[in-house]
């Protein structure tokens, strides 16, 4: 019989250990550790400026950590180039949407797998039949990913002319096109109305179960996070202040304090963060 702890370890896809980064005198993230298992949605929450996006940037190679490491299973990703990390199977979306403004919706997704066929681009200039076939195959995949997120009707639109909520979905489609094993979503529900949020939650669940991906989710909407995530890590001032299941985290006094400010009473009873958050 395998002990529970061992089983957990073999299941882990993405693992960050003791990440620290300083910008000048500011320690933006300190001693941060987190694991994302396959087929699970893990949440990363915390007040504004806590360092959540910085954690994503450390994991995806936008920033190099001063200390600590990032692994995808046994593969060391620490301090690798961002494109190498992406090719290894870690994809992400951005809090401030970063679509390719000069490209259509379909082209945005097609561009995301351009490196799969990069070496063949001279041949594709001459349109070898096999290359044309490959191009068609990639186009088909791009279309099916767009259909998966519900953007089929918008293929020929300019990406940045899409409504806000659909732009967020397009970023997800684009990330999926790289065939990732782990997907990092930075506030994917920001700016969405309740219906859109429900659709998005459903989509994230499908990504997790259909594609078998591990998902790491930053989100301010507590209801959204609590419903989706199996594990939650709470960050405040660059440090992890709590880790646990949604109900554990909700009860954690440190978390309550971080969200309500130091002046709040030492109310240790269970807290509905979804309603409390609105007070902040």
């Amino acid at each position: 019989m395998i002990p529970l702890s061992d089983r957990k370890i073999t299941n882990v896809l993405l693992k960050a250990e003791n990440l620290t980064i300083r910008f000048g005198g500011l320690v933006a993230v300190q001693n941060f550790s987190l694991s994302v298992p396959a087929k699970q949605i893990v949440g990363l929450i915390g007040p504004n400026g806590a360092g959540k996006t910085t954690v994503f940037n450390l994991m995806t190679g936008v920033y190099k950590p001063n200390e600590g490491s990032v692994h995808l299973e046994d593969l060391e990703l620490t301090a690798r180039g961002a494109h190498i990390i992406a090719r290894s199977g870690v994809a992400r979306t951005f809090q401030n949407i970063r679509l390719f403004a000069g490209l259509t919706v379909l082209e945005n997704v097609v561009a995301a797998q351009s490196w799969h066929r990069r070496g063949k681009s001279l041949a594709s200039l001459i349109s070898w039949p096999s290359v044309v076939a490959e191009e068609k195959e990639f186009l088909k995949q791009a279309k099916s990913v767009l259909a998966f997120v519900g953007l089929s009707d918008y293929e020929e639109w300019e990406a940045t002319s899409l409504p806000y909520g659909l732009q967020r979905k397009l970023e997800i489609a684009r990330a999926l096109m790289t065939r990732p094993r782990v997907l990092l979503l930075d506030e994917p529900a920001a700016g969405m109305n309740p219906t859109e949020k429900d659709e998005l939650a459903e989509l994230v669940r499908k990504i997790c179960s259909n594609y078998g991906l591990g998902v790491l989710l930053i989100e301010h909407d507590m209801k959204f996070v609590m419903n989706l995530c199996s594990q939650i890590t709470v960050l405040d001032h660059g440090e992890v202040i709590a880790v646990g299941t949604p109900s554990e985290v909700q009860k954690n006094p440190k978390v309550i304090e971080a969200y309500l400010g130091a002046d709040s009473s030492s109310d240790t009873s269970s807290l509905d963060l979804a309603t409390r958050e609105k007070l902040v």
Binding site: A82, H83, R87, W115
Partner: peptide, 9 residues
């Protein structure tokens, strides 16, 4: 930044 995050060199 987005390009690199999608594996583009």
């Amino acid at each position: 930044i987005a390009s690199r995050s999608l594996g583009i060199n």
